[in-house]
Amino acid sequence: MKILFALLLSTLIAVPSIYNSLEGDKKQKSLYPPGYVTIANVTHKNEKFNVVTLKREGNKIKAKYFVAPMNGKSVSERYKSWSNGKDGNIVLVSSGTYMDGSKAPVGFSIDNGIIVNSTLRDSDMDALVIVYATGGVVCSNLKNADLTIKGRKYDLRGNGRDLAEFKTWAEDEEATVFQTHLLVYNNKLTISSINSSTNVARRRFLAVGKDEDGKLVHMIVQCPNACTLYEGANKTFNFLREKQSMDITFMINLDTGYQDVFKLYNEDGTINSAIYGEKDLSVAINLLAYYYE
């Protein structure tokens, strides 16, 4: 009788905890629904490309960028805490702009209104990227002085008052901003073979524009074969224009050097190894994540 009672009691205790753990697993796997993300390996003109297409229509796929350590947490720790709260709805996470020798982001960067690097690079890095709290990403060409916010144009390099007002806006609006190489802008290649790095490496890019149906898409394209930044940008530009019929608003570089961090998830939450980074998440000092919400 005692044994029977003990068995009954342990069953009563065990069943809810097993149920909860199953629910927990279920939550971990409540991932993004089909139709929003396409992952493909494509060959164009004998060149291989690993491509992730993120459909922004309906604003269900969103971007979030991390660059400031906060409350004693590093960028990767902040990302981990945040992504745990997203119940696994993460599509991908990637390193963003470059990292310098002191493990700081290269170029102007602001995270939720907190200025991380106040230096506005004056020549080579023409992309100023704003990641909005709504999950949208916009990019302006610093060389063209065409950054427009609420109908007002800002010339951040040429006008000190514009830069001061932009910083105030970013702090007030808790904006998130970073600076990187601009490779394509309004369907024009903006990088030259003459003044770009000759380092050869695997390359990864973020292209934003409209697909052949005129719908807003964000595309991550990886060139798996090592090449220079110019070569990679040039062949990806041709691939997106010719094969994907993409109307490219902008294309920027994602760091595959010191912080080659990239994780891609399938709809079922399993890791997709079509694109992966060689470095651990903890190495990254800035992260760009895409998630479903």
Partner: peptide
């Protein structure tokens, strides 16, 4: 000194 002021040179 620059880093103290969130000014990174690279």
């Amino acid at each position: 000194r620059c880093q103290e002021k969130n000014i990174m040179y690279q």
